[in-house]
Design a protein around this nucleic acid. Structure first.
Lengths: 199, 199
DNA sequence: CGCGTGATTGAAACCCTTCAAGTTTAGTGG
DNA sequence: CCACTAAACTTGAAGGGTTTCAATCACGCG
């Protein structure tokens, strides 16, 4: 069945009954985008949250020199969006595009409200998601403030071993805030120390 | 009257009526902490959100070398907390202490829920606060990823001119992720370029 | 006054970047 | 299936921005 990831998510994580699921599913929209295509560009108002059914997305900003800074990756079962832009209906500063061919589910604000009304647990889960997100962002900030390139890379590998295998190295460098050349050298140094990514 | 900032906030920002306000106010607790004292230490579970009635707080983490990395300042009418720790009842990785003598209002999760039940707008405002917070964190991350020390400092001055005047320079450096010496040199260079913080 | 904290300045060192060249890998069309 | 090409990754040398360490200066406060 199509939409299996999202449906599973709603039942197991958000506690929707089978009946509630049938009530909700007809209203959701899906979209397929090919590798390299965009879901959001700088200056546009972001209209949806994007649930990744299958594939891999990234969100990034351009700095003053025109370089990409990757803020976030999103694989299966993750939600990515410029929440601020959705919520306040303001132009976004970010881009969201597909690293792999990707199928997403488009969720707008009213869908969230709708499901929250059907199922009170859903609201709680949604809040929980937000808090978790904030916690993750704080962790990232404290890492960028205090940790070396090597330590940031090791944390990334520990935290997202799956993503590491699916995105090109220069994107990881961009996520870590270093150049691809630096990351290459960090990895070389780690190899000499007998570091194995898979252990 | 005591609590004036918080009461004003609840009525003007969250739309509580005078009657609702009277219903709520008796249940809130305040706390005074002197400059240098702590509201939260690493390893403790954070039990409250802290609304700053008067004064100035900071939240920071210690990196692997024992250096402070300031994640957030909070002045009057701001809320600071380790939301993740409050929400999931897990030990915090952060410290919160007072930069000035400070009076805070202690808000726990049940208080939020309570007020949300009394006034439906409050829930919306609270969500809005979360979304705004996330947006601000993303902005900070993209800055740390892509901008130079000078540009980060200029952004800080533009965004928080009031805080700049109330905290020692080395704390701003810590917030920006550079050393106090570097910030001193950045400021010196800006002075040569005829930069005036007040304009 | 003297002490402690914060800010400044200098010199050397370090980490990371930049630029340029080379190598490997992956994808495409013949 | 090989040949070709573009993209990704590696490597080296030089340079820049930031840190480190140390010394000095400025200020507020008991």
């Amino acid at each position: 069945m199509k939409l299996s990831n999202f449906a599973t998510h709603l039942t197991t994580k958000c506690g929707l009954s089978a009946a509630q699921l049938q009530q909700v599913l007809p209203h959701i929209k899906t979209k397929k985008i090919a590798k390299g295509e965009y879901l959001l560009k700088q200056g546009e108002v972001c209209s949806h949250f994007f649930f990744v059914e299958q594939g891999l997305l990234r969100m990034y900003a351009l700095n003053e020199e025109g370089k990409e800074n990757i803020l976030q990756f999103a694989t299966e079962n993750w939600i990515v969006s410029d929440r601020g832009s959705v919520y306040f209906q303001e132009p976004s500063s970010y881009y969201i595009d597909a690293v792999e061919n990707t199928q997403v589910i488009l969720l707008n604000d009213s869908f969230i409200t709708q499901v929250a009304n059907i199922n009170p647990d859903f609201r709680k889960k949604n809040e929980q998601l937000l808090h978790n997100h904030i916690r993750q962002l704080y962790k990232r900030i404290s890492q960028l403030l205090g940790a070396s390139a090597k330590s940031r890379y090791l944390d990334f590998v520990r935290m997202y071993p799956d993503i590491m295998l699916r995105v090109p190295q220069w994107m990881i460098a961009s996520y870590l805030g270093i150049t691809p050349e630096s990351l290459s050298r960090v990895r070389k140094a780690l190899a000499k120390e007998n570091f194995k990514p898979n252990s």
